[in-house]
Write a protein that binds this DNA or RNA. Structure first.
Length: 574
DNA sequence: GCCGTTTTCGGCCCGACTGTTTTCAGTCG
C-alpha cells in the first residue's frame, strides 16, 4: 500500500507551501488530502485504477492527478520544485515550539539560516531580536524551544500516559474541590500515542483546584498558572493542560478539547450551514446560547447523534452520523476472553493458576494460554514434551474451575521458509494456534508476505499474531503486502490479532478497520508476560473501537463454548 | 485546492494568548 507514501508527500508539500506563505486554504487542502489518504482502508492504487480518486472527500481533479503522478513516478514534480525553493531542512523548524511558518520564513529569508545549530547561534548573538516583528522575548522562546525540541522523544505511548492521567484524576477527585472532571484530548480518543494530557474540570473554587495541581508530586515545572487554565510539565516529560469551565459549558468544552481538530472543523462547518456557531462555550444562534451543557446537546444541535470519542477523527463518522449509520461499537465490558497470554511454560512469569485467578478478578471467562514454540529459545519456547504436560495441566484446572476456562494455545513461530515450528501431528493437538513472525524481519516484502500467507493456508492455524510486527517507538512494521494477507485470511476464515500490548497495538486502528470491512474476524490478545498486564486488554478494545468494530467483529465477545466452536469450525473447514 | 437544493466564484472553524506592537500578526490547540 502506497497510502502512507502519498500522505507523507502531501504533508510535506503543505508545510513547504506554508513556509512560502501560500494561500492557507491551499495548504489546508493538502493537509486534509493527506489525512484522508492515510486513513483509507483500501489501497490508493486500487482506487486510482478504478478512477475513483476524485470521489474521496477533499480530493478534486487536481489532487487526483497528483496522486496518480506519485503512484507512477514515486514523487511529485511540485514537491521536487518546492524543495529547490525552500530548503527541506526548514521543515524541522516547524517542530520547534513557538516557531510557525511565518517566523521560519523570515529567519530563512533575512538571515539565510537553514539548520538548528545556525538558529541557536543566531539567537545567542541576538541577531534574531533585531528582525522586524521579533524581539528579545521571542529570541529567548526560540532558545527554549530548541532545548525542548532536542529533549523531546516524540509522542508517548497511550499505555504509559493513560494510567498517569487516571491517577491525576483520582487524586484531584479525592483531594480538591472538583465537581466534574474528565480526561479529554487524544487520550480520551484512545489514540495509540499522545502528545499531552488534557484535563477538564468544573468547580466553584477553581483557584484551590489549580493550587492542588501544581502541588502534585509528579509536577516538574509550572508553565502557566491561571484560574481557568494551568499548564505543567509532569516528570515523565509530558505536558498537562488543565482547564476549568462553567458547568453550563461542560459539554461544549469537552467536545472542543477532545478533538480531533479535523473532527471539530467538520462539526463547526455543519453548524455554519445551519446558521449556528460553535465554540468551547456552547452552540450559539446569533448571541443566544442554545446548547452546551452536554456533548449530546452539542451534537444534536447540528443534527448529529452522539459520536463516541474513539471515532472523532474525521474518518467518515460525520457522514455516517448524518445518515444514522454509526456503528454500535464493541463495549469494554463485552469482552469475555483474552486471546494471547504467556505463562511460565515459556517466558511469562505467571503460573496457570495465577492466570486463572487474575482472569476471574477481571471478569473474564476464558484465556488462551499461548506460549512460544520450541525454536524460539530466547523466549523459552516450549519443547514438545512439555507441551503435552501443559495440556494435561490445563485440562485438570478446567475441570475444577467453573467460572474461568483456559484454552490450550501456542504462539507458533513462522520459520524463515514459511513452515511452522511444530510438526503437524503436534499442531493438531493444540486447541488454538496463533502463528507469528519473530525472526527474519529483514526479508523482502515478498518473502515475509509469503511466510504469513503459507501460515494462513495451513489447516491447523487459527490466527496470526501481531501481523505487521511494528513496535511503537522502536521498530517499524516489516515490509508486508497487507492486501494479500487480508484476501487470504478472508478466504480461509482465519483471524487476525489486535495485539493489545501498548507498544504493539498491531493491527493498528486503520488496518483493523480494513480487516473488519472485509469481514475478517479479529481477536484481541494482551500478549502479556506479567500477570498485572492482563488489565491491558482495554488498549486492544480501544483499537477495535477506533477501527469501527462492533461486538460481532471481535472473537473475544464470544463465550467459552462459542469460541471453542469457532476454533473447531476453522479446523473442520480446512 | 476544494466545493456548491441559495453559489461554478468566493467562500473556506474558532478563540486565547503572546509579543510586538500602538491596533495586530503569529502561534497554538
Amino acid at each position: 500500500m502506497k497510502n502512507k507514501q502519498v500522505a507523507d508527500i502531501f504533508n510535506k508539500v503543505a508545510a513547504l507551501l506554508e513556509i512560502k506563505g501560500e494561500n492557507p486554504y491551499r495548504v489546508r487542502a493538502y493537509q486534509r488530502a493527506a489525512q484522508v489518504i492515510e486513513a483509507l482502508t483500501t489501497d490508493v492504487e486500487e482506487l486510482a485504477k478504478q478512477g475513483r480518486l476524485s470521489k474521496l472527500p477533499g480530493i478534486g481533479a487536481d489532487l487526483a492527478q497528483k496522486i496518480k503522478e506519485i503512484l507512477r513516478t514515486g514523487t511529485l514534480s511540485l514537491y521536487e520544485e518546492l524543495k529547490k525553493e525552500v530548503p527541506p531542512h526548514l521543515l524541522t523548524f516547524l517542530e520547534i515550539p513557538g516557531l510557525g511558518p511565518k517566523k521560519v520564513k523570515a529567519i530563512y529569508e533575512k538571515l539565510g539560516i537553514t539548520s538548528i545549530e545556525e538558529l541557536e547561534e543566531a539567537c545567542k548573538k541576538h541577531k534574531i531580536a533585531k528582525l522586524p516583528g521579533f524581539g528579545w522575548k521571542t529570541e529567548q522562546n526560540i532558545l527554549k524551544g530548541i532545548k525542548l525540541f532536542r529533549e523531546k522523544t516524540g509522542r508517548k505511548p497511550l499505555g504509559e500516559i493513560l494510567p498517569l492521567a487516571e491517577e491525576v484524576v483520582r487524586i484531584l477527585t479525592e483531594t480538591s474541590p472538583v465537581e466534574q472532571i474528565a480526561i479529554a484530548g487524544s487520550l480520551r480518543r484512545r489514540k495509540e500515542t499522545v502528545k499531552d494530557i488534557d484535563i477538564l474540570i468544573t468547580s466553584t473554587r477553581p483557584h484551590d483546584v489549580m493550587k492542588r495541581i501544581v502541588e502534585l508530586e509528579f509536577v516538574e515545572e509550572v508553565i502557566a498558572f491561571g484560574e481557568t487554565k494551568t499548564s505543567v510539565r509532569l516528570r515523565p516529560g509530558i505536558q498537562m493542560d488543565v482547564r476549568v469551565v462553567e458547568p453550563d459549558s461542560w459539554g461544549a468544552a469537552l467536545a472542543y478539547f477532545t478533538g480531533s481538530k479535523a473532527h471539530n472543523i467538520r462539526v463547526r462547518e455543519l453548524a455554519l450551514e445551519k446558521g449556528l456557531k460553535i465554540n468551547e462555550y456552547g452552540v450559539f444562534k446569533g448571541d443566544k446560547k442554545i446548547a452546551g451543557k452536554t456533548e449530546e446537546e452539542v451534537y444534536e444541535a447540528v443534527g448529529l447523534p452522539f459520536i463516541p470519542p474513539e471515532l472523532r477523527e474525521d474518518r467518515g463518522e460525520i457522514e455516517a452520523g448524518l445518515k444514522g449509520e454509526l456503528p454500535k461499537l464493541v463495549e469494554y465490558d463485552e469482552i469475555k476472553g483474552d486471546g494471547h497470554v504467556h505463562s511460565k511454560y515459556s517466558d511469562g512469569t505467571a503460573s496457570l493458576e495465577e492466570i486463572m485467578q487474575k482472569a476471574e478478578a477481571l471478569g473474564l471467562s476464558w484465556v488462551a494460554v499461548c506460549d512460544h514454540s520450541q525454536s524460539l529459545k530466547v523466549a523459552g519456547g516450549v519443547p514438545i514434551k512439555d507441551l503435552f504436560e501443559k495440556k494435561r495441566r490445563i485440562e485438570e484446572l478446567n475441570k475444577r474451575s467453573k467460572r474461568v476456562k483456559l484454552i490450550f494455545g501456542s504462539e507458533v513461530d513462522i520459520l524463515s521458509d514459511g513452515s511452522l515450528d511444530y510438526p503437524d501431528d503436534v499442531l493438531k493437538e493444540i486447541e488454538f494456534v496463533i502463528a507469528a513472525i519473530h525472526t527474519g524481519f529483514q526479508q523482502s516484502e515478498e518473502q515475509i508476505t509469503n511466510r504469513i500467507l503459507s501460515a494462513l493456508r495451513h489447516p491447523f492455524v487459527h490466527a496470526i499474531a501481531h501481523p505487521t510486527g511494528r513496535v511503537i517507538g522502536e521498530r517499524d512494521a516489516y515490509e508486508l503486502n497487507l492486501t494479500k494477507i487480508f484476501e487470504e485470511a478472508k478466504k480461509y476464515g482465519k483471524a487476525l490479532e489486535i495485539n493489545a500490548y501498548y507498544k504493539r497495538l498491531d493491527l493498528n486502528d486503520i488496518n483493523a478497520r480494513a480487516a473488519k470491512e472485509r469481514g475478517i474476524p479479529l481477536i484481541i490478545g494482551t500478549d502479556t508476560h506479567f500477570i498485572d498486564q492482563l488489565e491491558y486488554i482495554g488498549f486492544g478494545v480501544a483499537v477495535a473501537r477506533r477501527a469501527w468494530c462492533e461486538a460481532k467483529d471481535i472473537l473475544n465477545t464470544l463465550n467459552y463454548e462459542e469460541f471453542k466452536a469457532w476454533l473447531e469450525k476453522v479446523r473442520n473447514q480446512s
